[in-house]
Design a binder for these strands. Structure first.
Lengths: 338, 338
DNA sequence: ACGTTTAGTCGAAACGTTTGGACACATCGT
DNA sequence: ACGATGTGTCCAAACGTTTCGACTAAACGT
């Protein structure tokens, strides 16, 4: 920067002012400075900037997935968030340590590296929230905790998704349905989506007069396959599956197939919150009701950045409704033999 | 830090020395300082550190996917890289702008924010390499350019994958095979894997005396479906498909199904470099030959960090061989009617 | 007993920006 | 013609670390 100033024949501060726009600079001077920057290929040093300016233009995407992996559906959030951060000239740090390692999170935000944090995989009672509050760092969430909270968030409207999916199945004549939820450990730790899906399913099933069995299932195809076998053995009336488990759902289909059943003629499968990319990978393609993950990710960082740049206002909390894409895995219920 | 020093009754430098270990500190003093840090919940400021110390402990994962999305297989690299970076106490910045926006890349590295860069989606003639060389910033690659190069990289051994896959098909009696490659634009821009796969397929087909048709295909299920229809119309002898296109492969299967063909009885499909997670999502699960993406991502950052920390040595360049997982989409070739 | 090394500590100078206070000069309303 | 206001610029003080040189006291080799 000193070189630039010298070359343009101005002081350091003037160069800084054209960079930040904090004070007016005459058009002529500005041009000279910009030329000098161009010529010297000058790029401002991010650390000096962050140190003095108290703004880093870095946000962290906190996405606990260490070891475990990531659903393609969650990938949509990440991509939406990343793209938008990039277009807003922010850097996106990917932070994958587990929800329970609060000390690590505290250390991360304590470094002062981050302007803000975007939280994913939010639990109903999520301890990270108070860590962030204590650290006094702005944050937004994709997902939301139980109870009211003063914070920005976006989330899938699981109630809506479940309702749409179950009405779809009920409309096709299905009377007995299974909910294949996330893994038991996930449900037990109170992951928002998993808990809300279960509750909504029970509620809607009661309303619609459907028989419902809600079960957790590990996120593997073999678990899904084993599960559907057990379910069908125990309840021959079962004709519909509601799946909130991207990796188990194909297993459910495979398990049915292996039993000699056809999808959707003998068993219908409808997925919840499964991205198109994932739904299109099975054959036949999966009927699914989902929100636009990419847009949710985008809006998540938009809200966060708005907050960072001081356009305060009240907190935004937005539920995205589910839209049904009827593909090849749902059809009229097989008539009961009775 | 000043507070810590005051509380422990030492100077700033001494505190710094316990932090960095650059000079010895007596056990007693160290204990006092550490207690003070603990009590004050002190975390060193990342910017000041980066500014003075010339080490940021931040690396960028450059993964051009803006808008386009990410294959699940590529996700494996990212996760592997992220996990390992985290465990080595590095931060991982996700950078998704396109390969051709060199100015953006130059600006990114010019900021001095990064200790190093991990490059993905490497092209045979990749312009980013010289940008990084010019900027004199350490980097490693997942994938590798054509020709010899002084750099660390890991890559899938596409030659090996193709050979294993084609020998598998040939062994099952298939004589006429189609290669469903990545999208035409991707192949044309010279993405390493796509080009090497095509070349290897041609070479191995010749060796094995197989008939081969190599075609590009957009990364969507519908494109795959349309493609296989055209292919089968043009060549009724076709019984095997080699797919290097995660999203089109299920479309190929769906297209065959819609034509009344069965998989694998009438058409076998073998995927190249498709992650297990993706392969297990189709029904039946896809036969695939792939390398361990997660391990590749891990090794990528390991090599980079080694370089950063000055354990120089010669450059490491490692090809990961393909391992065949025979699942439900490959079987004996249907006998030709002639 | 006397230089020489070693361990342990301190003071102060960087690192490359942003920004508050000052100042010079031009413009304006009256 | 005069203070008030606004524009464009500069100087210097931060920001929170790391690290170099210097110093003291103890331990060491001869």
């Amino acid at each position: 920067m000193a070189d630039v100033a010298r070359k343009a024949g101005v002081s350091l501060s003037t160069v800084s002012y054209v960079l930040t726009g904090a004070r007016p600079v005459s058009a002529e001077t500005r041009a000279r400075i910009e030329a000098a920057m161009e010529e010297l290929r000058y790029t401002p040093n991010a650390f000096a900037r962050g140190l003095r300016g108290r703004r880093s233009k870095i946000i962290a995407l906190v996405f606990p997935s260490r070891g475990r992996g990531i659903d393609i559906s969650s990938l949509g959030y990440i991509l939406g968030a990343s793209d938008h951060a990039q277009s807003m000239d922010y850097h996106l740090l990917l932070w994958t340590t587990e929800t329970q390692s609060l000390a690590a999170l505290r250390a991360l935000v304590g470094q002062g590296l981050l302007d803000g944090v975007l939280l994913m995989e939010v639990r109903l009672d999520d301890p990270r929230i108070s860590v962030l509050n204590d650290a006094d760092i702005p944050f937004a969430m994709i997902g939301h905790p139980g109870g009211a909270i003063e914070a920005d968030w976006v989330d899938t409207d699981f109630d809506d998704c479940v309702r749409v999916a179950m009405e779809h199945l009920a409309g096709l004549g299905h009377r007995s349905i299974a909910l294949v939820n996330q893994a038991a450990t996930v449900v037990e730790t109170g992951l928002g989506g998993a808990v809300r899906t279960r509750e909504a399913a029970e509620r809607v099933a009661a309303e619609l007069g459907l028989e419902l069995e809600a079960v957790a299932c590990d996120s593997t195809a073999t678990a899904g396959s084993a599960l559907i076998n057990g379910l069908l053995d125990a309840n021959p009336r079962l004709t519909g599956v509601l799946a909130f488990n991207e990796q188990a759902a194909p297993g459910v289909m495979a398990g049915a197939l292996a039993r000699g059943l056809r999808v959707p003629d003998d068993l219908s499968v409808v997925a919840i919150a499964m991205s198109d990319q994932a739904a299109l990978m099975s054959a036949p393609a999966m009927t699914a009701v989902s929100a636009d993950e990419r847009e949710m990710g985008r809006l998540g960082v938009e809200l966060l950045i708005k907050r960072l740049e001081g356009e305060a206002g009240p907190h935004t909390q937005k539920l995205f409704e589910g839209v049904l894409k009827s593909r090849g895995t749902s059809g009229p219920a097989r008539p009961q033999r009775n």
